[in-house]
Amino acid sequence: MERTGIQQSRPTGGQRARFNVLRWSVYAAALLVVIAWAFILLDGNSGFGDLFRERTWQNAGGFIASLAGQGSDGPSPFVQAARWRDTGRLALNTLAMSILAMGIAGAGALVLLMPGARNVSDGTLGGAPSRTGALVYGAVRILYTLTRAIPELVWAMLIVFFLSPGIIPGALALGIHNLGIVGRLTSEVVENLDPAPARALRAAGASSPKVLLYGVFPQALPMFLTFLMYRWEVVIRTTVVVGFLNAGGLGREFRLRMSWFHYEDVALLLVWYLLLVIAVDILSAQLRRRVRWD
């Protein structure tokens, strides 16, 4: 009896194979960490030694003091209403850029919602599976992978080449990258949703747009909006970075003030940045709670 008990508790072949993927991945990751750190630290210019030099910390202290306004001449930008107003306008532009970016990503993901889901192309949701459907599915998936793999900032570097500076190029760069992320997640939601309503609609003779509207949207939309809100929290943090590349908003001003050593203005811009981040985090959390589709 005892013997069979032990035999039963042994992992089956499948489980053993699964276990190995994990174990070897952890070993490989650990090895990679060691090699990466060795490579970085053995290079003489890693800057690791500087962490333990007093001068480094003095410089850092001096930088923080100048952020707080020490050693600057003239009145602090924090007490000038005009500076608050100007930077506030930039903050609004940054906010607009983030919303526009989410609009681009969301609109793209909605358009590609159906062709990008496997269960639509292979006919699980009703309708005949077609070669074109499979091809379009593959193309959309490749598009998602490419847009996702290339970071916002690289998209922005490419886009500022053709488009004039302003909110649009930044929003476009953020939108393209997030299309890949939101699109992939939403397609996965569509692939996992209950096919019964869509099939019933299809069987009753509903057209494809109607199946989409009544069979897929009501189920997929809450998760879609949740992803959009989550990504908005990330995007508002990244708008500033995209703005570095002449794409307008707080980022451009931040970069300029940094290069002019106007550290007190940098501090003011950071205040606006943090206010935006906190506001979007709160708004997103509130909206996500309201998304439930009854």
């Binding site: 970085i40 290079d43 210019n45 890693s46 800057g47 690791f48 500087d50 962490l51 480094t56 410089n59 850092a60 930088f63 923080i64 900032l153 943090r237 990244t238 500033v240 970075v241 570095f244 931040f254 970069r255 940094m258 550290y263 950071l270 940045y273 943090l274 981040v277």
Partner: peptide
């Protein structure tokens, strides 16, 4: 704060290095 904003602040504070 985004990592690149941290990076710019660090570069201004302690200078440019991989660390």
């Amino acid at each position: 704060v985004h990592e690149l904003v941290w990076a710019l602040l660090f570069v201004a504070a302690v200078g440019l290095s991989p660390m």
